[in-house]
């Protein structure tokens, strides 16, 4: 067993510096590496390029980094829940690369899988296609998209072990599973770090080879963005 365990978030985030490109898992606020984001705020690193499907909300998730103007560029598919994000984008303070969600996921997966580029029909004929190679396959137009190149990938899992193996829960798997192993260094923040051998190898979603550092988060707020319920009859 190769030990990936580090003692805390400070140790896990060592080496992250200003101007780096960082991938962060999560969809909305679900499955975001909240302990690592809090530490990035503490580290006060700036001019970051963040690859993340969303940008959190004003006072949680990546919204915390936006408030402190630590992000130079965001690469996302949907930013509708964050007023500060929209303000910085429309005023030109923040550089934003809006990318179709499936393309964003595949650009992560391609990096994870060692594929430099791929063709997708998403965005053909729209401004997303501008400057990109277009080619016809099977009678349909596609555009070429390249794999992301990131310095760090920070993912959040439900359970993990010191070998770096990860298991996700529910829809919190989202981009976390695509980003693990998609950057030079992958940091995994887990709700529960279990003893090696406790996870059934059949149930592991991401094998430890994709993870360089793993730690158990100190606390998880797991905030819900849209609490929708029904009444008992």
């Amino acid at each position: 067993m190769i030990n990936k365990k580090v003692n805390n978030v400070q140790e896990a985030l060592q080496g992250i510096e200003s101007s780096m490109t960082i991938m962060l898992g999560g969809f909305g606020l679900s499955g975001i590496p909240e302990n690592s984001i809090a530490e990035l705020v503490q580290l006060n690193v700036t001019d970051l390029t963040c690859i993340s499907n969303n940008a959190g909300v004003d006072d949680f998730g990546l919204g915390l980094l936006l408030q402190k103007k630590q992000i130079k560029k965001m690469i996302s598919s949907y930013v509708g829940e964050n007023a500060e994000f929209e303000r910085q984008m429309l005023s030109g303070e923040l550089d934003v690369e809006l990318t179709p969600q499936g393309t964003l996921a595949e650009k992560c997966r391609a990096a994870q899988a060692g594929i430099p580029a791929f063709f997708t029909p998403a965005g053909y004929g729209t401004e997303v296609a501008e400057g990109k190679e277009a080619r016809e396959f099977n009678g349909k137009m596609h555009i070429m998209e390249e794999a992301y190149k990131a310095d760090f990938s920070i993912v959040k899992a439900w359970k993990g072990d010191a070998a770096g193996n990860l298991i996700f829960k529910g829809t919190a798997r989202n981009f976390n599973a695509c980003m693990a192993g998609a950057a030079k260094i992958t940091i995994a923040e887990v709700e529960e770090l279990v003893p090696v051998g406790a996870l059934d190898p059949n149930q592991i979603h991401i094998p430890g080879i994709m993870v360089q550092r793993i730690f158990q988060g100190e606390k998880f707020e797991k905030r819900i963005e849209q609490r929708t319920v029904r009444q008992k009859a």
Partner: peptide, 9 residues
């Protein structure tokens, strides 16, 4: 600008 989310795909 809210973004295209998954709509383009």
């Amino acid at each position: 600008v809210k973004g295209m989310g998954g709509a383009m795909d």
